[in-house]
Simulated assay, not measured.
Amino acid sequence: MIIFVLLLSGVLIRAYRDLSQPGAWEFWRESYIAASMTSAVISSVDIDGSGRGRRALAISGEIGSASASWFRDRLDEARLSRGDAVLLSSQGGSLNQAAIMGEVIRARGLVTAVGTADASGRIRPAACASACVLIYAGGDKRYGIAGSRLGVHRFTSKAQMTDPVAEAQRIQGMVLGYMTKMGVSSEIVEAMSQTADIRWLSERQALAMNLVTTPVNRR
């Protein structure tokens, strides 16, 4: 009994130390209690109005500290193939997690669009702002749904730091490198840096930046 108590105490102490790290509790909560995002699998959506249906995973909500792992699991369950779609509706969240999610989308050859869909596959406009734009940028093709909105702003770190200027430059460099890799113009980073509030891009701006690659003109 004494040995059992000592072993249990050791486990609890290690768990306390792990959870006492910055962000650890949030990660644990999202991983094991309640994810910050929700998802739905749609068997067939017609994104471009061509009549061709494709399978889609619709995700929405805040991008949390464990969202990338959650997203991979949802993609595996959805069994999407190259050319299938990820529909997005989010006001943002974790920058690093969003970048990983975008990388996963690109590696799997999936397309992206901002919107929600009902069970019949009908797409409705939605908003994708802040870190969500990085997920959207991961699409092999990035469809522009009429009425949907893409919003950008200057990214900041919540962590305490000794040199805020250096941290801001690091974040800007990371975002620039990621967007360039995804084929998006560096102009988007300039647009982000101009405001701390959400700046909603016009359709013309999103196209000029190559953020939207395929505008949808529905009949």
Rank of each mutant, 00 (worst) to 15 (best):
Q160T: 03
L207Y: 04
A78L: 03
R29E: 15
W28I: 02
N217G: 15
R218D: 02
Q205H: 09
S60E: 12
Q205I: 10
S31N: 12
L19N: 13
L8H: 11
D197Y: 03
D140A: 15
A206N: 10
L57I: 00
G121L: 08
V41T: 11
E77W: 04
V189K: 00
D197C: 05
I100N: 06
K141E: 10
D18V: 13
A126M: 11
S36V: 01
L57P: 03
L134V: 03
Y16W: 15
G115Y: 00
A24M: 09
E26Y: 09
G102C: 08
G92K: 02
A35P: 14
Y136G: 04
G93S: 03
A129S: 14
A35N: 10
Q21N: 11
M101F: 13
T112M: 03
G147H: 00
M37T: 08
R17D: 14
V152N: 06
M192P: 04
A117S: 13
S69E: 14
R170V: 00
A126W: 07
S44A: 15
V11Y: 12
R82C: 04
R72G: 14
G173D: 14
F71K: 04
D73C: 07
S202K: 03
G51W: 01
L57N: 05
R108Y: 09
F4N: 12
L8M: 14
V175Y: 04
